[in-house]
Amino acid sequence: MKPYTITTEVTADINPTLADELAIKFIPMAFNLDDVPFKHYTDFREMAAKEFYERLSQGQVSTTSQPNPTEYIDYFEPLLKDGSDILHISFTSGLSGSYNSAVIALDMLKEKYPERTIICIDSLCASSGQGLLVYEAQNLQKAGNSIETVAQWVEDTKQKIAHHVIVSDLFHLKRGGRVSGATAAVGSVLAIMPVLRIDEQGKLEVISKVRGKKRAIAYFIDAFQENADAMHAQNLMISHSDNLDEALKLKSAIEQLNPEHTVFINEISPVIGSHTGSGTLTLFYIRK
Rank of each mutant, 00 (worst) to 15 (best):
V150K: 11
S180W: 04
C120F: 00
L133K: 10
I198D: 10
L236Y: 05
Q256L: 08
D229W: 01
Q225H: 06
E9G: 13
V103S: 03
T92W: 00
Q130I: 02
V10T: 13
I166T: 04
L56Q: 09
R215F: 02
D107W: 00
V134Q: 13
M1S: 14
P16Y: 02
S168C: 14
Y72P: 10
S180L: 01
A105M: 05
A126Q: 05
I86N: 06
L190S: 09
S252P: 06
F52H: 07
T64D: 05
E200D: 15
R55H: 09
E54Y: 00
D82P: 10
D107Q: 12
E77Y: 07
H40P: 00
A162N: 11
L132A: 14
D242A: 12
F76H: 08
Q141P: 11
S90W: 03
D34H: 08
G187T: 04
C125W: 06
H88M: 03
L56A: 12
Y53I: 02
D156F: 15
A137M: 09
N15V: 01
V36M: 08
C120Y: 00
I118Q: 00
A102G: 03
D245Q: 12
E260W: 02
L133Y: 06
N235E: 11
F284M: 13
I286V: 15
H232W: 03
A230T: 00
G177R: 08
T64V: 01
N266P: 10
Y285G: 11
T64H: 04
D222H: 11
L257S: 08
S128K: 05
R45C: 09
L79Y: 01
L248Q: 14
A218Q: 15
G176Y: 03
A151E: 04
T42R: 11
S274C: 08
H164G: 08
I161N: 09
E54F: 03
G187C: 05
Q256P: 03
H88G: 04
L124Q: 15
G131Q: 08
E155W: 05
A182T: 10
E71A: 10
T11I: 05
F224C: 08
A30W: 03
L236Q: 07
A49V: 07
L283N: 10
V167M: 10
A102N: 04
L248K: 12
R178G: 04
S65F: 04
N139D: 14
F171L: 12
M1R: 13
A233Q: 11
I272H: 06
L133H: 05
T157K: 15
N145T: 06
T42G: 03
S98F: 02
S241M: 04
A49C: 15
K2L: 12
M108A: 09
A48E: 12
E246F: 09
A247D: 10
G94A: 01
E21P: 09
I121T: 02
F284C: 13
Y285Q: 10
P28Q: 02
T8Q: 10
V61D: 08
W153T: 13
S241G: 14
G83E: 01
Q130P: 10
P67L: 06
S146W: 06
P69W: 02
